[in-house]
Design a protein around this nucleic acid. Structure first.
Lengths: 292, 292
DNA sequence: TTTCTTGGCGTAGAAAAACTATGGCTAGTA
DNA sequence: TACTAGCCATAGTTTTTCTACGCCAAGAAA
């Protein structure tokens, strides 16, 4: 008779977390990004968990993973559990006497929109330590420890969202380039500046205004919108300007609209909050200062 | 402006688990036992968590810990979260094709009561791998991965409990000792055998039968009841017998009751199951074989 | 008193886990 | 025929976690 000397060991917690993230994103890479590790680590964790369970949880295809039937069965439970755990962690963190306030934002927003407002807020709330994390995609506020996020998104009318402004685009350039740009063939002659994460901007604007262009994708590419803005200010070409991000540059005259036709992208700049019960007490204060 | 390069890191999962266990038991030692580590490890985890949170969660007194107000606030959340997680882990394990069936039992039960039945069960269910863990105190079935536990307890009428029999005690001894034991002063002359975890047995029985003894605690002590039973069978003295554990020895005549006065301890031998939805499919089968 | 027991702390070193870096593979895409 | 996106596997390193052990304080027992 085999008397096990030890209590049966549960699966490793970290492996479960990795599985949960991978299942939620249906991607090891995305999970790795969320957990701030390499995809290899996720792979190992998932494998460990599959080993523990004795059954595969993912089907690995060359172009991505998908959950097996077994995996499907589990994901709801794990989601729920880690949601609760995230709640608990948030509660834990919220009793920290010295407040840390975490903001997630699109890189462009973090660099162009936030700084001015954050300076003001810091002046008003000197006891809070703000930190800003630039992310390409909005994090899950119920899972990660951000106190608010600012991204371009489709408002869904939830009370946890505050719409700051509609996203509107129009071509802009430095005043020194304006005359050239406004000539009949301006868009052909002056380089168009592109942001890699907003590849669709030029086509969208051109189409919405009935223009056609041979080569709407030509011109320098920038990995950060703020770089493109700097180049535009330096006179390097015409940039598709997101009005809410460059309002100061327009006001100060370092950028001017090439013409008056602007076009809404359909998205809005949206401040997203965790649900009421999990917010830091300072949140409302910060939001009202941010959006004023 | 401080742009944090990384997403805010949540607290370490293992530290949270350690805290949860420590908070639930209000004891580092008990938590350590549950998690199969040394108390030092728990201490470190809790300290790490307190460091992360920036606030103490436990008040350490020389004779044990107690939760601070902050700790009190958190325990419910953490309990909930880890319950869910345990559920998920159980679900995960339950899809293992090759079944492992974990039983927790009091050492005495594991050694004296289980083996016979388990042999029968193994014969009936040859594909299941049974493992038995001997524990002094019943584990939480909603938290640990046991499929059932067998302990002496007060039945609470829940449908997750099956009462096997009432616990009844009466002095027993080897036939060779019987005559000496039954003499008027038998209990004085023949050594009384004691089990350390059931110190109260002799006093209880004596009292319930109106006897008084100068020295009811004298005699050899055993750390395991099964050792005491062996000694009794070898003629070393009179043992307070728990009838349901020694029925075979009585039936075979290797032990006999000194007199016929038995006394219920108020407890019963109880099979405890996890709640319905978390059970292994084989559970009902095992239970019916166990209690038949 | 003094001594023992219980339950906590702290630290050093050992053991285990987790992570990264790298190269390789496959299937869609250009 | 490349090229890209995603996943895998492995080796080696870094980090975490655990144990072992000595210490201390408070209450219980002698």
């Amino acid at each position: 008779m085999s008397v096990a000397p030890k209590r049966p060991k549960g699966p490793p917690l970290n492996a479960m977390r990795a599985f949960e993230a991978a299942a939620r994103h249906v991607s090891f890479v995305a999970a790795a990004e969320e957990l701030n590790v390499t995809p290899g680590a996720i792979s190992q964790h998932v494998k460990a968990l599959e080993g523990w369970a004795g059954t595969p949880l993912f089907r690995r295809n060359a172009q991505g993973v998908e959950l097996t039937r077994e995996g499907q069965l589990l994901i709801a439970d794990f989601n729920e559990a880690f949601d609760r755990l995230a709640d608990a962690a948030r509660a834990l963190r919220n009793l920290q006497p010295k407040a840390e306030f975490h903001i997630a934002a699109l890189p462009a927003v973090a660099q162009l929109w936030l700084p001015k407002r954050l300076r003001r807020i810091r002046a008003q709330l000197p006891n809070i330590n703000f930190s800003v994390t630039a992310l390409e995609t909005p994090p899950s506020l119920s899972r990660e420890l951000f106190d608010l996020s600012i991204f371009f998104a489709l408002p869904d009318g939830s009370p946890n969202q505050i719409v700051v402004c509609e996203d509107e685009i129009t071509p802009v350039c430095a005043p020194t380039v304006l005359l050239r740009a406004q000539r009949p063939n301006g868009f052909q002659d002056v380089p168009l500046l592109h942001d890699q994460t907003w590849k669709g901007d030029w086509p969208k604007w051109l189409q919405s205004n009935g223009f056609h262009m041979r080569d709407e994708n030509s011109g320098p590419q920038f990995s950060l919108y703020s770089l493109a803005v700097e180049e535009a200010k330096a006179g390097a070409g015409i940039l598709m300007g997101h009005l809410c991000l460059i309002e100061d540059d327009i006001a100060s005259g370092s950028l001017t609209a090439v013409n008056t036709q602007s076009c809404p992208t359909g998205l809005s700049l949206v401040i997203q909050l965790p649900r009421q019960s999990r917010r830091r007490p300072e949140t409302d204060r910060v939001v009202s200062l941010l959006s004023s």
